[in-house]
C-alpha cells in the first residue's frame, strides 16, 4: 500500500543543506493496517507524512503508493486521490463556509458529477457522524467536530488510505476521543489503511502497529505491546508510555516480578492481582 525505500530528505534553507530530516528510511505499510507513528518534535514524522501523497518528493530513495512511484508526475493526482490527508489545525484545512460544501471540495476538484458528489458527501458525513451538522458554519463547531469534518473531506475522495498528522494535538479530551472513535470506525467498517502521527501514547496503543522515529530513521517497528514494554528506550527518546505500563515496569525494576507487558487498566490490574496471588501462595 505505502512503501518507503531508502528514503532520504533534507530541507534546503537556500544557502546550504541543513540537517538531514529523513535518513535512509524504510517502511512498508500494508492494506488495512492501522499504524501509529511516534517520535518527538522534529524527528521527521511530518516530513515522512508529506511524502506519502507527493507533497514532498524524495531526494534519495523512493516512495510508492499502491506500487506507483510518487516521482511519476503523470500519476501525481492518482496518488493524491488515494491518500487522504488530515492535518493538525482544523481551521487551516477547511476551505468552505458550510460543512457539506467543504466535504464536497475534493470530489469537485476530481470532476465528479453533482449527483455522485451529493452521495459521497452524505456518506462521508454519516461515517464521521456529522451528517446533522451538514448545513452548519465550520467556525462555530467544536475542535473535535471540525476535525471530523476534515476527515470527511478526505474520505469523500474515496481514498485507499488516510494519513493524519497529529490530528488530536489541538483538541481537548472529548475531541480526542471523538477523533479516535472515528478512526477506529473507519478501520472496522471501511477497512481503511490509517497512518496516525501522534504524541499521545494511549492513541498509539490502539493501533495495530507502532513505528517509533528518531533523528530521521525508524528505531522500533512492532506491535504496541512490544513497543511499550521497552520503557527505557522510549523515555530516552523523549517519549512516554501509558501510565499503567510505566507503573508495572517500575515495580518490576524494584524487584517485584509484575508482568509489565500491559497496555490497559484491566491488563495491569490482572497482572498485579496475579503477582499478589503468587506471593500469597508462596507464603
Amino acid at each position: 500500500m505505502l512503501k518507503a525505500e531508502n528514503l532520504l530528505y533534507s530541507y534546503d534553507n537556500g544557502v546550504k543543506k541543513v540537517d538531514t530530516v529523513l535518513d535512509n528510511l524504510n517502511l512498508n505499510i500494508k492494506k488495512g493496517e492501522f499504524v501509529a507513528v511516534l517520535g518527538h518534535n522534529g524527528c521527521g514524522k511530518s516530513t515522512l507524512a508529506k511524502h506519502f501523497n507527493g507533497l514532498l518528493l524524495p531526494l534519495g530513495g523512493d516512495v510508492y503508493v499502491q506500487g506507483i512511484n510518487t516521482k511519476d508526475e503523470e500519476m501525481l493526482w492518482t496518488i493524491r486521490r488515494q491518500v487522504g490527508m488530515v492535518f493538525q489545525n482544523p481551521d487551516n484545512q477547511i476551505v468552505a463556509n458550510v460543512v457539506e460544501e467543504d466535504v464536497a471540495f475534493a470530489p469537485e476538484n476530481l470532476g465528479i458529477p453533482s449527483a455522485e458528489i451529493r452521495k459521497r458527501v452524505d456518506d462521508a458525513l454519516k461515517t464521521v457522524d456529522m451528517y446533522r451538522y451538514r448545513k452548519h458554519a465550520p467556525h462555530l463547531l467544536s475542535g473535535g467536530q471540525k476535525q471530523r469534518v476534515a476527515i470527511a473531506g478526505a474520505i469523500a475522495m474515496r481514498p485507499e488510505c488516510i494519513v493524519m498528522d497529529e490530528p488530536t494535538a489541538m483538541l481537548d479530551p472529548m475531541g480526542r476521543a471523538e477523533v479516535m472513535e472515528t478512526i477506529l470506525k473507519l478501520k472496522a467498517q471501511e477497512n481503511m489503511t490509517v497512518v496516525l502521527i501522534t504524541h499521545y501514547m494511549d492513541e498509539a496503543a490502539m493501533a495495530d502497529r507502532v513505528v517509533v522515529m528518531d533523528d530521521g530513521h525508524i528505531v522500533v517497528d512492532d506491535t504496541p505491546r512490544n513497543v511499550f514494554s521497552q520503557v527505557e528506550l522510549l523515555k530516552s527518546l523523549g517519549l512516554d508510555v501509558p501510565q499503567v505500563t510505566e507503573l508495572a515496569y517500575s515495580l518490576n525494576k524494584e524487584g517485584f516480578d509484575v508482568n509489565y507487558d500491559v497496555l490497559t487498566v484491566t491488563e495491569c490490574a490482572d497482572a498485579i492481582m496475579d503477582y499478589v496471588r503468587s506471593i500469597k501462595s508462596g507464603n
Partner: peptide, 8 residues
Amino acid sequence: TAGLDPAG
C-alpha cells in the same frame, strides 16, 4: 502544554 510533545 497544548500541542507539545511529551518531553516538551
